Amino acid sequence: MISGRALRYFDTVARCRSLRQAAAQLHIAPTAISRQIDLLEHQLGAPLIERGPNGISLTAAGELLAAQTQRTLRDLERVQEHIADLKGLRTGRVSLQVAEGVVAGLLAPALAKMGQRYPHLSFDIGIASASQMVEALRRGDADIGLSFFMPRHDDIVPFASAELHHHAVMAPGHPLAVASEVGLHTLAEHRLILPDESYGVRQALERAAHQAGVALAPTFKTASLETQKHSPLTVQVFWYCHRWR
């Protein structure tokens, strides 16, 4: 029978790709990890890792076990959290994948309130596009995703949604700065900075532009919100939450 300790050791090695780094994270000797991996290889009847000058690499069998181990350990962690909840402890770790734009206005205040109410909860927060978020949720690497224009999928359950309004943002001296309203046809005539096609907001804009018969050709494509906000010669399309439902 494969022990949980051996799986945890192997998972750490698979993530670090180094016995020494894995040992440092686990606060044990590298030889202890080697013994557990040797035991796993004996039980499974296949080599799991290969040692080379550049560190550890996983064999084909190791890659399969690493993927399964992540899911198994995550499921075990959730069971432990549910048991703790039954005891009234409200402990555990929540993994979040979020769009950069929701952090300051939505996520940070919500986490501050959660921290006060449930002081034993901890959070892992990763910044991701909508498509990356979907894959993380499907793999079980994330518990919750917060995104603009999250695509709908049958295997992902929407918990809450909100109306979004789009606004074009530009420097005060830009020709469009005095306009009270800016349409897609007008936007297409100016230099634009937009996120790449993996982002839901870009996909929504492209759909609207296609319906309007407009081709949007951004001068700059970047996932960095700060870069988008500080480009004085371009127009950026911002969005904000109008009302949660």
Rank of each mutant, 00 (worst) to 15 (best):
F10N: 07
D11Y: 06
T12Y: 13
V13Y: 03
V13K: 01
V13N: 03
V13R: 04
V13M: 07
A14I: 03
A14K: 03
R15N: 09
R15E: 13
C16P: 02
C16Q: 02
R17D: 11
L19I: 05
Q21G: 03
A22L: 07
A22F: 11
A22I: 10
A23V: 04
A24G: 12
A24N: 15
Q25G: 12
L26C: 10
L26I: 11
H27M: 02
H27Y: 03
I28G: 00
I28P: 00
A29I: 00
P30K: 02
P30T: 01
T31R: 05
T31A: 08
A32K: 10
A32G: 05
I33G: 02
S34P: 13
R35S: 09
I37D: 07
D38R: 05
L39M: 12
E41L: 08
E41K: 04
H42Y: 11
H42F: 13
Q43M: 12
L44D: 15
G45P: 06
A46G: 09
L48D: 13
L48R: 12
I49Y: 06
E50P: 01
R51C: 08
R51P: 04
R51S: 08
R51T: 04
G52P: 14
G52Q: 15
G52N: 13
P53E: 11
P53V: 13
N54A: 11
G55I: 08
I56T: 14
L58K: 08
T59N: 01
T59F: 00
A60D: 02
A60H: 05
G62P: 08
E63H: 07
E63T: 06
L65P: 00
L65Y: 10
L65R: 09
L65D: 02
A66G: 12
A66C: 11
A66H: 10
A66T: 08
A66E: 07
A67E: 13
A67N: 11
Q68M: 09
Q68C: 10
T69W: 14
Q70S: 03
R71K: 07
T72G: 12
T72I: 13
T72Q: 15
L73E: 02
L73K: 01
R74Q: 03
D75H: 07
D75S: 01
D75W: 00
L76A: 11
L76D: 07
E77Y: 00
R78G: 00
R78F: 05
R78C: 03
V79D: 00
H82S: 04
H82I: 01
